[in-house]
C-alpha cells in the first residue's frame, strides 16, 4: 500500500480537505473538519479501496497519516 496514494484517498474521503494539502506527518485528528462524519467516510474509503476493516477506536488511537498507514499495512499482512 503506497503512502502517497493512501494520503490522496484520505484527502478525497474527508470533505473540505484540499488534495495535496496533507503529508505523512499531518495530524489528521487536528483537521478543522475532523468529526464523526469524517470518521465514517474514512472507514468507508478504507473498506472500499483496501478491503480492510478500520475501527473508530483505532482512528482515535493514531495521530498522523503515516501511523494510520502503518496500521493498515499491518492489517493487510495478517
Amino acid at each position: 500500500m503506497e503512502l502517497e496514494t493512501f494520503i490522496k484517498n484520505f484527502e478525497e474521503a474527508v470533505e473540505d480537505v484540499e488534495v495535496g494539502s496533507l503529508s505523512g506527518d499531518s495530524v489528521y485528528r487536528s483537521l478543522e473538519h475532523w468529526d464523526s462524519l469524517a470518521v465514517l467516510t474514512v472507514i468507508a474509503m478504507v473498506d472500499a479501496e483496501y478491503d480492510l476493516r478500520l475501527k473508530a477506536r483505532e482512528l482515535k488511537q493514531m495521530q498522523t497519516l503515516s501511523e494510520l498507514h502503518a496500521l493498515l499495512e499491518s492489517k493487510q499482512s495478517i
Binding site: S36, L40, I43, A44, D47, R53, L54, K55, A56
Partner: peptide
Amino acid sequence: MDGAEIFNFSIT
C-alpha cells in the same frame, strides 16, 4: 448508537 460500528457492520 455507535454510528461508526453500525456502519462497519452494515457494509460488511
